[in-house]
C-alpha cells in the first residue's frame, strides 16, 4: 500500500468539500465557474495562467488538471513551458528584488 499525502484520486472528490461547509463551498465553486467562464480572456489564456499559478502554489492536483486542460484547449508544450517560466521568473524576481533591501542595509551598516 502506498503512503502519500497526495492521491490523484482525491481530485475527483474536490466537489465534496461542501459536505462539511455547504454555503462557502457552493459559493467558491460558483465563483470558480464564473472565473473560467466566457470573459475577456480566452479559455486557453486562462488555462495557461492557471497552469503557471499551479506551479507557484505547487499544487500537484492543479498541475495535473491544468496540464491536460491546456492541451485540450489547444496549447502546445512550448507555450505551457513558457507559462511556467513566466511564473518562475516572477517568483524568482520576487526574491531577487528583495536584494535591494539587503544592499541598502549592508551599505548602511558598513563603513563607507
Amino acid at each position: 500500500m502506498h503512503n502519500h499525502y497526495y492521491d490523484p484520486e482525491d481530485l475527483k472528490n474536490f466537489g465534496k468539500v461542501t459536505e462539511f461547509e455547504e454555503k462557502m463551498g457552493a459559493k467558491f465553486f460558483e465563483y470558480y465557474q464564473t472565473v473560467f467562464g466566457k470573459g475577456a480572456l480566452s479559455a486557453r489564456e486562462k488555462s495557461l495562467i492557471a497552469l503557471a499559478v499551479a506551479h507557484v502554489v505547487q499544487c500537484p492536483y492543479c498541475i495535473d488538471a491544468y496540464s491536460t486542460d491546456c492541451l485540450e484547449k489547444g496549447a502546445n508544450e512550448q507555450q505551457m513551458m513558457e507559462a511556467v517560466h513566466v511564473a518562475c521568473a516572477i517568483r524568482g524576481g520576487a526574491s531577487l528584488v528583495h536584494a535591494t533591501q539587503m544592499m541598502k542595509h549592508v551599505k548602511k551598516v558598513n563603513l563607507p
Binding site: 480566452s42 479559455a43 486557453r44 491536460t68 492541451l71 485540450e72 484547449k73 489547444g74
Partner: peptide
C-alpha cells in the same frame, strides 16, 4: 485529433489557430 490521452479543444478556436 489529440496527440495523447486527452480530449480535443473547441473546433472553431483550433481552426483559427
Amino acid at each position: 485529433n489529440p496527440t495523447g490521452a486527452f480530449l480535443p479543444g473547441a473546433q472553431e478556436e483550433l481552426e483559427a489557430d
